[in-house]
Amino acid sequence: MPAAVASPLTTAGSRNPLPRASRDAAWVRWTLTAVALVFLAFFLALPLAAVFAEGLRRGVAAYFASFRDTDALAAIRLTLLTAAIAVPANAVFGVAAAWAIAKFPFRGKSLLITLIDLPFAVSPVIAGLVYVLIFGANGWFGSWLIDHDVRIIFAVPGIIIATTFVTFPFVARELIPLMQAQGNDEEYAAATLGASGWQTFWRVTLPNIKWGLLYGIILCNARAMGEFGAVSVVSGHIRGETDTLPLHVEILYNEYNFVGSFAVASLLTLLALVTLVLKTIVEWRHAASRSAST
């Protein structure tokens, strides 16, 4: 997700029917709607359909046979493992960063916020490259790692670290503006009532940010499971060992196993669709709780 695109959580609002002066003529409405829908159909709906069409080209049996492959299962396992580490790590970071930034005044705050966004501005390929430069055979710690028989690059740790890098800002950038907008009064109220720091966080802050946190986690998870460029650089493409699902898609595709490739891709597409649905639900819930509290 983008650097600096305003989160719908902090901007969403409901609107009444447009006043007369804001309405466009019928032919303008129809033309623009048609243009928009045709454009979106070509660029969004068609690729979506293509994934499933290609995956099912040889029939349902061939489609499902693609998942019985042990390499595919290994790729699923590795993808889940990667997300299971990177997402909680970045969620904890996001909460801590948002607490420090939203609750306390200090100098350099806006610089810190910019730095947190930095991974979004960096090409995923470069995200992979930086870890090769540090942990690769030629890198800073390369010879030390070889001496101690620790493998990071072309191994699972590298995949997890690179994934953590590219998904780094997701939770923080949802929570920082949200917590800043909410202010500190409820936390202060809890403090005057004798609550400890932990009690304040668990009983007051967390319930207020839960939708934003969930939203960030959903986006973070989608990217963690789908990351391709960064992981591609550090993985080494060892089948059954350092292949994540997106990498497995590439391997099968390059082997001209299109049905298998699109079948695995359809799995990731379903994940993307589930992400969009969850994201939309969270946006609604959040908007509802927000309008209720004002």
Binding site: D185, E186, Y188, A189, A190, A191, T192, L193, G194, A195, S196, R203, V204, P207, N208, S289, A292, S293
Partner: peptide
């Protein structure tokens, strides 16, 4: 603040919304 035993009422009340 928690150990001063003060009751504080905020301008916008700061009731816990949830």
């Amino acid at each position: 603040p928690g150990r001063r035993k003060v009751g504080f009422v905020f301008q916008h009340y700061a009731l816990f919304r949830h």
